[in-house]
Write a protein that binds this DNA or RNA. Structure first.
Lengths: 211, 211
DNA sequence: TTAAAATTACTACTAAAGTGGTATTGTGCT
DNA sequence: AGCACAATACCACTTTAGTAGTAATTTTAA
């Protein structure tokens, strides 16, 4: 296979299981577009060494025993924002996925995915893509939907919607009243009705329920 | 190619450009796992007919002139939640992508993607995946990051993070104090410090800034 | 080993927010 | 015509939230 790029994509791998590590390294070595610069078996060394290397992509196993790959990404990403991190792991509960993305990971590939897809993922991340297993993408979309539908089925009136939107901006009753040309007391009444409908009794609760 | 499934995946396509429609239909007909049950050139007919068909996946072009594919999905998805919708389009600004996902679309494929990937996407959606072009996935991840980093760069201490999380649940000072075995006055002090750091002066503003 | 944060806590006060009751007017639906 | 509901508004009252100043103790980082 001829290289498609002038220079190879420089990557590092953080993986404690030597068997898996050897396996993926051998897979990636077969790809002439990728150069495995260095591998790490634990986070501390990775954390101390990676900033001194020139790298495009780092593949990180999340669940090294007793350590946390997400913390590694969180610590490294702000230091070297140009590096793309791909989480490569068997853990894929929603919490973990989001923590990883939050920490700054670009891609998230489960080990269940055919391992040879990893090199595609690396190229994808390098080109600015966000490689993700389809099950991961699913989770994100699902949580997106949940996020959008967490709202209640309660119907607020037009005025009430206006007001709850203003509440969400942290405006005071007085400020809302001024913007809508209402008396503070009217705003108060609307808010009371909103709370009644949503079955809550504070602004924050209302916002949590409604949005 | 032998069918991989006992029965074919039944799909419909909504696409006004007959050239593109013919093209993708011919592509999909070559796939023995997929059966194109019906095609539509405009939304109204699609809206009225689709509920009467037995379908697994519907491929929708978002930008039919003067109409809105997202509205179609929004209207149909609640009626027939078992159908998976794949948006197939050249529009892919962040707004549109999110609106589509919000409306209930499962996948989002740009026309820039190799057209033959469409059949993969259909199978993926059918199996419960969330097919997405890598550029779309990118957008989602990016907006996720933006969402997470809309937060200030301000560093809250461990205690302060605990407390702001509780604030976000709508707990009162007294309730927070009890949960953390602190005096209400201490909670009050922490919150004052949080507000100082975030440069705000109410709970809602703090939450908006931080989350 | 210092200086800087973080964590704890109190007093005293003001400003908002939330609760409860009540009432008028308008609009849409039956 | 009558009912339900939305929108407006006021009074009176209690509870929380937010502001300000101060300070002791502990942790953490330079």
């Amino acid at each position: 296979m001829k290289p498609l790029l002038e220079s190879k994509i420089k990557i590092a791998i953080v993986e404690d299981d030597l068997e898996i590590l050897d396996y993926i390294v051998s897979l990636l070595k077969a790809d002439s577009n990728i150069e495995v610069v260095k591998t790490f078996e634990e986070y501390n060394t990775a954390f101390n060494t990676i900033p001194n290397l020139i790298l495009d992509v780092v593949v990180v196993d999340i669940n090294l025993p007793g350590q946390n790959g997400i913390e590694l990404v969180k610590a490294l990403k702000p230091k070297i924002p140009t590096i793309q991190f791909i989480m490569y792991t068997s853990l894929f509960d929603a919490e973990t996925v989001f923590s990883a993305l939050k920490a700054g990971a670009t891609g998230y590939i489960t080990k269940e995915t055919q391992p040879d897809k990893l090199s595609d993922a690396i190229k994808d991340a390098f080109k600015g893509g966000a490689p993700m297993s389809s099950d991961i993408a699913r989770k994100i979309v699902k949580s997106f939907h949940e996020f959008e539908n967490k709202s209640t089925n309660v119907q607020l009136s037009k005025r009430e919607k206006e007001i709850i939107n203003m509440l969400s901006q942290g405006l005071r009753y007085k400020e809302i009243a001024d913007k809508l040309f209402l008396s503070t007391e009217t705003v108060r009444t609307h808010i009371r009705n909103i709370y009644d409908k949503l079955q809550v009794n504070s602004r924050t609760e209302a916002l949590n329920k409604y949005f």
